[in-house]
């Protein structure tokens, strides 16, 4: 019924030579850098490389040291808090904004431009401007105190207990516009007739969103989730710019740990082990997703 499987697929080596030449950069990148580089790093995470990589294997030593390091534990805790809140808030805020934008409003383009512009800015710029706004001497805290609320205290960047929430505020400011845009595109992809049918059925708007539209947007939500999540694991520049990991080590994150050990502390093995842990974290996120995507494609 569906035609001959081998039709239209020439197998001559020479006929596709140009395509193969054009794909050399991709093949090199995929195999040498992505695959080879990853394997190399994982392998060398089992060595005691210091200033230069040395193939002297020491088993799980680096990992034991890593998980015994308070700085790494703080980094992981911060990543967990930052990640969880970023996921929840950016999805909720992003969806609410997208739903509001989908109400056939006036000035839609203006609002979208405003919500999305932070995404065009680098994390360095984002971190520095929020460092300034959250500056307790001149920023929000002092402004609120000047309004008469003398005891008001909000100095996340100088308070190790809440510093990661200061980073979170900046991160959300930068990234929710993107989430809003992705979800808005998803909302616009919903068949207009579904909305009409729900109105004829007398289903209130919030129930239509909750029980019909959001379930229909599952693929969009999953994709968005994966994008947010892989961004969270990479978070680095934002912390460098906003807090430099401080006060003390209270806003350290894994990516910064890796960089510092590889390039500043000259303890490569430790950096490799930490980056391998980052890889594991990402794998935990994307393997189930890839499995779902891949499984879905096979069925189709």
């Amino acid at each position: 019924m569906t035609g001959q499987p081998h039709a239209g697929r020439p197998s001559q080596l020479l006929r596709n030579l140009n395509a193969k030449i054009a794909s050399i950069p991709m093949i090199l990148t995929a195999v040498v850098i992505f695959l080879g580089g990853t394997i190399w790093t994982v392998v060398y995470s089992f060595t005691n490389s210091k200033l230069l990589p040395r193939a002297k294997f020491v088993g799980f030593d680096q990992y034991e040291r890593l998980w015994a390091a308070p700085r790494w534990i703080v980094s992981i805790e911060n990543l967990a808090i930052y990640g969880l809140f970023t996921l929840v808030f950016s999805l909720v805020i992003g969806f609410v904004l997208a739903a509001l934008m989908d109400q056939k409003i006036r000035f839609e383009n203006t609002f979208r431009t405003i919500f999305l512009y932070p995404f065009a800015l680098s994390f360095i710029v984002t971190g520095l401007v929020w460092q300034w706004i959250l500056n307790p001497e001149f920023g929000v805290q002092s402004v609120v105190r000047a309004l008469g609320w003398e005891s008001f205290a909000f100095d996340p960047l100088y308070n190790s207990k809440i510093v990661i929430y200061g980073v979170l505020i900046a991160g959300l400011w930068q990234g929710t516009g993107l989430v809003m845009c992705l979800l808005l595109a998803g909302l616009r992809g919903i068949d207009e007739d579904i909305w009409k049918a729900a109105r004829v059925d007398g289903i209130p708007m919030w129930r239509t969103y909750l029980f019909i539209v959001i379930p229909m947007m599952r693929p969009v939500f999953i994709t968005t989730l994966v994008i947010i999540a892989s961004g969270i694991v990479k978070v680095y520049d934002l912390v460098v710019a906003q807090t430099s990991g401080g006060p003390g080590i209270s806003s350290e994150v894994p990516a910064k740990y890796v960089y510092d050990y590889m390039f500043l502390a000259q303890n490569l093995g430790q950096g490799f082990a930490a980056s391998t842990m980052m890889l594991v974290t990402v794998a935990i996120i994307i393997v189930p997703w890839a499995y779902l995507e891949f499984g879905g494609r096979k069925r189709a």
Partner: peptide, 29 residues
């Protein structure tokens, strides 16, 4: 409002709620 007009409507794209069973589609409203 449409729901108060005493009408039922059938759409070109069917507009069935994809995550619900047929029974749920019929009974949801």
């Amino acid at each position: 409002e449409p729901k108060d007009r005493g009408i039922g409507m059938v759409f070109q794209s069917y507009a069935l709620y994809p995550q619900m069973t047929v029974e749920k589609n019929l009974s949801f409203g």
